[in-house]
């Protein structure tokens, strides 16, 4: 039980991290016409236009915060999902299987996302 208490504390801590970085992410992506951030949307148009993606990719700060947000959100989301599933009181073996699958999915997507953050940063600096 001690272990789950620790994981729960990490869940809260990850929530605080997500609050900051996902707050920024949502502001950049979806509140760009209200909260005017000229430096973040340099090419004008939409935040997902390639020129803007490229501009963010050039920034090392963006690359680092992407990885931080990726890790925090993966843990927070998958641990939350695990809590919901565990509340349905599955058998012990099924619980282990759920934990294993979520762990593998989490690590796998963390690897993919971290690769994308680094590779796109490298690509953007070269372009």
């Amino acid at each position: 039980m001690m272990r789950d208490q620790k994981l729960w504390t990490w869940h809260l801590a990850a929530g605080a991290v997500i609050l900051v970085f996902l707050g920024l992410h949502m502001t950049v992506m979806h509140l760009d016409k209200i909260v005017l951030l000229a430096s973040v949307n340099p090419a004008g148009g939409h935040p997902i236009d390639w020129q803007n993606v490229l501009a963010r990719g050039k920034s090392a700060a963006f690359a680092v915060t992407y990885v931080v947000l990726l890790g925090a959100a993966l843990f927070h989301g998958l641990y939350g999902l695990r809590n919901i599933l565990f509340e349905l009181d599955p058998a012990r073996g099924l619980k282990r299987a759920i934990s294993a699958v979520l762990l593998i999915v989490g690590i796998g997507l963390f690897v993919v996302g971290t690769w994308a953050a680094i590779a796109s940063h490298t690509l953007a600096k070269a372009m």
């Binding site: 990719g57 989301g77 999915v105 997507l109 993919v112 996302g113 994308a116 953050a117 796109s120 690509l123």
Partner: peptide, 11 residues
């Protein structure tokens, strides 16, 4: 989870 996969294509 899907968002990670889709946006990773930027790399």
């Amino acid at each position: 989870l899907l968002h990670i996969l889709v946006t990773s294509s930027r790399a």
